[in-house]
Design a protein around this nucleic acid. Structure first.
Lengths: 249, 249
DNA sequence: AAATATTTGTCCGTATGTATT
DNA sequence: TAATACATACGGACAAATATT
């Protein structure tokens, strides 16, 4: 933060308004300021000098961050960080959403958003070791912790084997318990592939993040004790709210 | 792709130009179009109708994607995807950069960008089990595969134990070989924490991605065979170029 | 081979939002 | 608050290259 490079010669050829670029860069530094000086940001005048823009532009940036709930300005006192720490989300051979959050005394819940019977595409069918164009059960779930949506996931399972699962899930709000009710005593994770990308409009709406907000996407295969794949999931985490912890790796 | 929601009443009030929002949404669909019709995108007129904007606005979006090297337009023919597949990057107890890429016959290399002796802050010192304010060796490296920067990493090590490491690293371009030369026969990863965020200006420059491009950040602790921490690293992957594979988890 | 349709490239102009002074 | 400069967004018209019939 010692020195800042000038953003763009005369402003905003990048397609992003100057006030928004400033807001994005202030957002990056919020974590640092949160730990210093009672969470106080530098004054508007100081920020204007640092980014080499007019104070009006800094005010527009701070107003945007205030709309996001990240800072609050108080007349005569200054502008302060309103931080929400990231939730640590462990990934391992025996990852489950509820236990993942209990470790930090947060109460986690899975809400079933919708379910449908669909025809598996080639990738899903091969992953679940089913014949092409088999019927599969698709579930969409929302993982919530501390009243905040954390993850939005789509799951695919063999329709023949897990037809009763949506009913169990709506009642128990637990994937583990619902699978047990369908005769799966235990399961474990075979592999997880992670990538980062921007949210689509639907994903942003479900997770209540800004349009085009950042996601961490985890594609996982769960297998039963005999090693047979029972579930393929794509879980989209609101990147700003979690960090993924890979145990022993 | 069947129906598109209208982006923003009158466009550019959100601080992000309409052409840029459209570029972001087209970018998401490139992977789909790449597999169809010879990698051809819908025509400018069709995209304009689909997003309900003027054709010139679509052209601005496509021009931005062309600057990123993602598409190429040819007069009279159309616009085509220039795809570069993501590199699979395995993370596990015995992760090493070079072997990670050999598996897919890509040649990976680590370039040492700079190194310095610095005073450890509280987090680094505690992580490396050193007294507060110890001197540590800081390295910055660039991981390159297929002529493309993949990762930009900062490493911290006990300065007393690894003073000769930069010289070895510049010569061998391998972390594993350099540690061996400093008397570490073997090491393994104790933990990895992953998060996603936007790149700072410096990170974007090192990785040659657009400003504010997406990163996957991995913070890892490597320990020697006796379990003593020898290295703490923060590796920033260009999100668009990699997927992280967590084996058996 | 020739006419026509499709697609991208370039030019004009107008209105509005952004950023500084 | 006002003036200025520039970027965004839209609309239309036409040229140039390619594809189709």
């Amino acid at each position: 933060m010692a020195e800042e490079t000038k953003i763009d010669g005369s402003g905003w050829r990048s397609g992003v308004a100057l006030w928004r670029q400033i807001a994005d860069r202030i957002r990056e530094d919020l974590a640092i300021w949160a730990t210093q000086d009672g969470g106080r940001l530098p004054s508007e005048a100081e920020l204007a000098a640092r980014f080499d823009v007019n104070r009006h532009t800094v005010r527009a940036a701070l107003a945007a961050l205030a709309r996001e709930g990240l800072v609050r300005s108080e007349r005569g006192r200054g502008t302060f960080v309103m931080r929400r720490p990231r939730i640590a989300y462990p990934i391992g051979r025996r990852t489950r959403f509820s236990t993942a959050l209990e470790a930090q005394n947060s109460s986690g819940r899975i809400h079933l958003l919708r379910h449908a019977l669909v025809v598996a595409d080639a990738v899903i069918a091969r992953t679940l070791a089913l014949p092409d164009a088999s019927e599969v059960l698709m579930l969409e779930t929302l993982g919530v912790a501390v009243e905040t949506p954390i993850s939005f996931a789509t799951h695919w399972l063999d329709a023949a084997r897990f037809a009763d699962l949506p009913a169990h899930l709506a009642r128990t709000e637990s994937i583990t318990a619902s699978l047990a009710a369908c005769g799966v005593q235990d399961y474990e994770r075979r592999s997880t592939v992670l990538e980062a990308r921007r949210a689509t409009a639907q994903e942003a709406a479900e997770l209540d993040i800004g349009d085009g907000g950042l996601l961490m996407v985890a594609r996982a295969i769960n297998v039963d004790l005999s090693g047979h794949p029972i579930q393929f999931s794509e879980t989209r985490f609101a990147a700003e709210r979690v960090e993924i912890v890979v145990d022993g790796a």
